[in-house]
Design a protein around this nucleic acid. Structure first.
Lengths: 202, 202, 202, 202
DNA sequence: TCTTAATCGAGACGGTACGTCTGGTCTTAGA
DNA sequence: TCTAAGACCAGACGTACCGTCTCGATTAAGA
């Protein structure tokens, strides 16, 4: 997190009271609770401040928007993390990933995630933060997963893995955010079936 | 539009003043102008009403949210429409589509579209309307495009075109909404290259 | 009141919803209650709005400050009004006035009045309103009282009644606002004694 | 000043860092500058602290409110002091006093003084300090001035000088703080004219 | 032609959250 | 122990929009 780094560089150079880690944690915790109770859209900075027993100023001092608070609140709990396990085959790896990933997009946690995505589309500054801490790292993991497929000979060596990952993640996000069709096992299997049909460009 | 149908059923049965088409058009025009000037997020119903010289009530009477107004404002100008031409080959069809589609996602019109997508993620009711009038029809056209590829023998007959369309549209939306990489010709060519490598499942 | 006049001139000329007299009265009533409960300084616009069941905007729409609300709240109850009775003698008139006037400067109502005076010293716009509706009319009544003294021959005809009224009201306000000495009967009698010693300038 | 006395009693008995006179003066100087720039009402403790390069705590440690700071800041510059000269006659003494006193009530310094008066009306604790250091001493000087008039035979020996001083100061403050009429030479002459008409009570 | 009823522009209304501001307190490191 | 700095809790500020609710004035059908 950007904050933690700042704090370190602060060292013992500047005078003044330091950031209260107690308040910091209380805010993140309160954000999670409010999210759970009223959802992303109805969540307000005021409610977080009240629940955390914190002045609104203390939130505005350290975060630029409610989306930024939520992003850190989620990141610090790693509950959105999905492991990219090595099952020995590309098919298995992908199916395992989808099996773990899709359920987290249902219900409340899905609403929160789509709320963050919405915020990213409305606020360019938050978009960069969201991409930096969430979107880009995930994609790199998927590329690594596909790379293993290449090494095993399941994908042609000349496959553009970056774009293939765009296609795979794209399909997932497209159905999650935009298209009215379920994110289920059948969908996962059909995606994998298509991926496995890719042959070399000779 | 839902509105137009309602008006028809009204017929000549009820007394009272009819809906003013002048106000209707003034609202859509004002919505477009306000969008152009301040962007989707900063746009308010009040601003549209003021610019259109219209009471807020008149807007609320006919639309449920600012997103609904914007959706109709855009639809009524068909500026987001992209033709799916038949160039004689799947590769040509796809490249032609991307070449026409990508520029419209840049600049102001891109911001408007991502604003609508954001709204869809925050408001389930608007999401349904957005899907019904925008997302689903587009996908059906893409499926039809792919269908021509099957007929020409460029895609295997047993290809799941629905899911393939999810992958293609997904990649486009993913880069548009979430991933920090450009929507350019190179991206289009790489997608097409991958699609053309799909072989039959035997 | 300025408001009432505006409303009258409004007549049926302007469109739009009219000012709600119900809200108007509720705000004045709430202001009186909050004043009673927490005093002038601790009173807030928010508290008035909450107690009146009114949006803050409705208060800000019609009054420029909390002092303006309080001024009208008091004026509309005429509880600060003190009659200037005609007892048949200047001495009697003055003593009667002081006897009625001094008690109202004690306790809660005194605090409210000094709060308004303070506001007038801090806010020139409110000062003008305060003078117009409160200070100047009172003084004119006192001048009229003194005029009766002249007619009865108790004051010399060449007495500058305006300045004499400044002296009398000044002494009262000076002790009320600034000087730590009581506003009691003894003070009233001593003032009257001095006034009655005024002789003609020959 | 209360503060200065406290410092003396501290002597060299107690351990710890002594009060910084440099900070003390910087605060008073900053208070004067901020007063000059933004006026009494808009002045804040924070602004004084920032301009003085001093922690807010250092101000709160030594003064109870911004009014207390201002009171000392002004007192330490004695710019509000007005000498009560002996011109040889009551008329001359009073006119000389008014001539020196009235100009200081105009413009910025007048605003500051009325701000302090306002504060005194809102804050009983400050009111006592204001009376102790400012109001009461002035009045005693005026009483002394009047006393000279008694000794010269210009006022009857049985005149209640305390109440007469209330009338004179009252008239001045009344016009300064409340009544919309100028504090000018004409007003001074009219007051003096009335005072000189006082005869004995026989 | 008159009645009836829905529409219109205008804008006040009750609410709610915003992001800012200030007050007064607390916590640092250093003098 | 005091200082400068500044983060902290608290909560009012005045603003902005929301979506609803009057208003009087149109506007069209049916009586």
């Amino acid at each position: 997190m950007k904050m933690a780094e700042q704090e370190k560089t602060q060292g013992s150079l500047v005078p003044g009271r330091r950031r209260s880690d107690q308040s910091h944690q209380a805010i993140l915790q309160a954000a999670r609770e409010v999210l759970e109770q009223v959802g992303y859209r109805a969540m307000t900075i005021e409610a977080i401040a009240a629940k955390a027993g914190v002045g609104k100023k203390t939130i505005y001092r350290w975060w630029s928007s409610k989306a930024a608070v939520v992003l850190e609140a989620l990141a610090s709990h790693t509950e959105v993390e999905v492991p990219f396990a090595d099952t020995g085959s590309l098919e298995g790896d992908l199916l395992a990933y989808f099996a773990l990933s899709f359920p987290g997009l249902q219900g409340k946690s899905g609403t929160v995630l789509s709320g963050l995505a919405a915020e990213a589309q409305l606020d360019p500054e938050f978009a960069r933060e969201f991409q930096r801490t969430f979107i880009v790292p995930r994609k790199q993991e998927l590329v690594a997963l596909l790379q293993r497929g290449v090494q095993r000979g399941e994908l042609a060596p000349d496959t553009n893995l970056e774009v293939l990952a765009d296609l795979i993640y794209g399909a997932k996000w497209y159905r999650f955010l935009l298209y009215p069709a379920p994110l289920d096992d059948a969908f996962a299997r059909e995606i994998v079936k298509l991926i496995l049909r890719l042959r070399s460009g000779e």
